Amino acid sequence: MLRTVYVNGRYVPESEASVSVFDRGFLFADGIYEVTAVLKGRLVDFEGHAARLHRSLNELNMHLSLNDNALRDIHRQLIDKNALQEGLVYLQVTRGVADRDFAYPESQTPATVVAFTQQKPIIDSPLAERGLKVISLPDMRWGRRDIKTVQLLYPSMAKMEAKKRGADDAWLVESGLVTEGSSSNAWIVDHDNTLITRELSRSLLHGITRRTVMQLAREHDMKVEERGFTIKEAQNAREAFMTSATSLVYPVVSIDQRPVGSGEPGEIARALRRLYIEASLEAMDAGQN
Rank of each mutant, 00 (worst) to 15 (best):
A29S: 13
A111C: 06
R141P: 05
N82A: 01
S56Q: 05
A50N: 10
A111W: 02
L71E: 02
R145I: 00
R100N: 09
R42S: 15
V35F: 02
G131E: 04
H63V: 11
N58L: 05
F26V: 10
V35L: 05
L91V: 14
D139G: 10
R52H: 10
G143N: 15
L64M: 00
R144L: 13
R144H: 15
L27C: 04
E47C: 07
Q77W: 06
Q119I: 05
L84P: 07
Y104D: 04
I122K: 10
F26H: 01
G41P: 11
V89P: 13
N69K: 09
L39T: 07
R42A: 14
W142L: 01
G143W: 12
L57S: 14
R76D: 12
I147C: 09
G87C: 12
L53P: 01
N69E: 10
L132P: 00
L88E: 09
E86C: 04
Y33G: 04
F102A: 06
L88G: 08
R141Q: 07
W142G: 01
V44R: 14
I135S: 01
L27P: 01
I123Q: 08
S65I: 11
D101S: 14
E59M: 09
A29P: 00
F28N: 03
R42I: 06
P121C: 08
G87F: 09
G131P: 03
P110V: 05
L27E: 03
I32M: 09
S56E: 08
S56Y: 08
K148M: 04
M140G: 02
F102W: 13
E129R: 12
T36C: 08
A128G: 15
K81G: 06
Q92F: 03
A29C: 07
I79H: 05
R144W: 09
L91E: 08
A29Y: 00
D99K: 09
L127H: 01
T117R: 04
L57E: 15
V113T: 05
L64T: 00
G131A: 04
L66S: 10
R52E: 04
F46R: 15
Y104Q: 08
E34Q: 12
L66P: 02
D68W: 01
P105S: 02
Y33R: 03
L53V: 06
L71K: 04
G41K: 11
N58D: 11
D124S: 08
V113P: 03
D30V: 12
Y90F: 13
H49F: 06
S125G: 04
P138I: 07
P126I: 00
Y33L: 02
D101L: 10
E59K: 11
R55S: 15
L66T: 04
A50I: 05
I147Y: 02
A83H: 14
G143D: 15
L66V: 07
P105W: 09
S136T: 14
V113G: 03
D68H: 14
L53C: 08
K40C: 12
V97D: 01
E129V: 11
T94C: 08
A103F: 13
A37G: 10
